[in-house]
């Protein structure tokens, strides 16, 4: 499991491809929002939270698409499938690597969005990192499973968002809400059921992915 994480991270350290493209894409999405909507109206915690999650979802999906492309193209897929390890750990390794990319991207993005679109009414609390972590973990859990599947099909660029966005809908609703609360300085009691929803989502789909990855890798 950790071998996969190390492998993905060292490729990233040498090339910097994933994180650079993720960050640039995210920046572009923010610019698109600012150009297509009136930037002066996009202020306050709700918009920062909403923009962060829309951006992370769009840019993250495009980047997660690449997650298994190297394996497919270089023939390492078969090697992975033949490796004498539990396939669930291969899945978890990929999830952790993708989680690290997405977390790094959100750490860069959040201040950027806040600066570009106004900091009025923003008072971050420890709930903010917690909600970002839980939300990004869910995106990584679903995105990793589906990107392994989509990498096998035609039109994989279209297919991954098509498969993952609807399934991620409950997560997105929850993450936008908890991030707003984290930015606006609300207390945990006010959003505890939301946090449970996020945690539940992560738990359900990490378990499902861990169990079902066996089937996905088998070809």
């Amino acid at each position: 499991m950790w071998a996969i994480v190390r492998k993905d991270l060292s490729i990233e350290r040498r090339t910097g491809e994933m994180l650079t493209s993720l960050f640039l894409l995210a920046l572009l999405v923010i610019l698109l929002f600012a150009f297509s909507l009136e930037p002066d109206r996009l202020r306050g915690p709700e918009f920062v939270a909403g923009l962060l999650w829309t951006t992370l979802l769009l840019a993250g999906t495009l980047t997660l698409n690449r997650s298994f492309v190297l394996e497919r193209e270089l023939g390492a897929w078969t090697a992975l499938a033949l490796a004498p390890v539990d396939r669930g750990s291969i899945y978890l390794g990929k999830v952790i690597a993708n989680l690290i990319f997405l977390l790094a991207a959100s750490v860069l993005l959040l201040p950027l969005i806040a600066v570009l679109l106004g900091t009025k009414g923003i008072a971050p609390t420890p709930l903010l990192p917690l909600s970002v972590f839980l939300g990004v973990l869910g995106i990584a859990a679903i995105g990793t499973l589906f990107s392994a599947m989509a990498s096998r099909t035609r039109a994989r660029e279209v297919l991954l968002p098509l498969l993952s966005f609807p399934v991620l809908a409950p997560l997105l609703i929850g993450a936008a809400r908890t991030t707003t609360a984290g930015l606006a300085g609300e207390e945990l009691e006010q959003i505890s059921s939301w946090m449970l929803l996020l945690g539940g989502f992560d738990l359900v789909f990490l378990t499902a992915g861990w169990m079902l990855f066996d089937v996905v890798l088998e070809d």
Partner: peptide, 25 residues
Amino acid sequence: IMRYAAVLGIVGVLDIPLLVLAVRL
């Protein structure tokens, strides 16, 4: 693809209770 579709079929049904909870909240 039959296997992948089966994976999605199962993931989809797991999503329903979470979705119900999310939209209600």
